[in-house]
Amino acid sequence: MLDHTDMGILRELSKNSRITMKELGEKVHLTGQAAAARVAKLEDNGIIERYTIEVDQPQLGCLIHAWINIYTKITHHQPYLSFIETQENYVLNNYKISGDSCYLLECRFPSNEVLDQFLTDLNKHVNYKLSIVINKL
């Protein structure tokens, strides 16, 4: 079970995973050495799985942020999944979900033309419903 300090460590690492252990310790009222030991324990217990970065997609030229609900045509989903694996330049996340659709794709595209081609190719495997993000609040 995680205590208040562990939750604080996770919150701070989620904001900045490059923070020094000394800075982390100061934020959660521990020494740097104690903070490092807590982080190591969280890693060993599988609570912290990996460290990553958040990329500013518009800075990379991917201005179109799309969410796509996927409706499969058949019960065999492998053709769709294989297609998605080839689209790593555009697909940020592919979630298997419950509800009306089978999957939910989070994607980024540099232009409407690229999005249109992606949807044309996607439609060979599944039906879809597209939503475009207007603004992140």
Rank of each mutant, 00 (worst) to 15 (best):
M1V: 00
D3H: 11
D3V: 14
H4T: 15
H4Y: 12
T5K: 14
T5R: 12
M7F: 06
M7D: 06
M7W: 05
I9V: 14
L10D: 06
L10F: 01
S14K: 14
S14N: 15
N16G: 02
S17I: 01
S17M: 05
S17N: 14
R18S: 12
I19A: 03
I19T: 12
T20R: 07
T20P: 02
M21P: 09
K22T: 12
K22D: 05
E23D: 15
L24C: 10
L24W: 08
G25Q: 06
G25E: 04
E26V: 02
L30T: 09
L30A: 05
T31S: 15
A34P: 03
A37P: 01
V39C: 05
A40K: 15
K41H: 08
E43I: 15
N45M: 13
G46F: 02
I47H: 01
I47D: 02
I48C: 02
E49D: 08
Y51R: 15
V55G: 03
D56K: 13
D56Y: 09
D56M: 01
P58D: 07
Q59A: 12
Q59Y: 04
L60S: 10
G61F: 07
G61C: 07
C62L: 14
I64W: 04
I64F: 10
H65A: 13
H65C: 09
H65R: 13
A66K: 08
A66Q: 07
N69D: 12
N69L: 07
I70L: 07
Y71D: 06
Y71Q: 05
T72P: 01
K73Q: 09
K73F: 10
H76L: 03
H76F: 11
H76D: 15
H77V: 11
Y80Q: 00
Y80E: 01
L81I: 10
L81T: 06
S82G: 08
S82R: 14
F83H: 07
F83M: 01
T86L: 07
Q87N: 01
E88Q: 10
E88T: 11
N89Q: 11
N89V: 00
Y90L: 04
L92Q: 14
N93Q: 10
N93K: 11
N94H: 00
K96M: 14
I97P: 00
S98F: 13
C102F: 06
C102S: 11
Y103K: 01
E106Y: 11
R108N: 10
R108A: 09
P110N: 11
P110Y: 04
P110K: 10
S111R: 05
N112E: 15
V114W: 04
Q117I: 14
F118T: 04
F118E: 04
T120C: 08
T120V: 14
L122H: 01
L122N: 00
N123I: 01
N123R: 09
K124P: 00
H125M: 09
H125I: 06
V126C: 13
V126N: 02
N127M: 07
K129H: 12
L130W: 06
L130G: 13
S131T: 11
S131H: 13
I132M: 12
I132S: 06
I132A: 02
I134S: 10
N135T: 03
K136T: 13
K136I: 13
L137S: 10
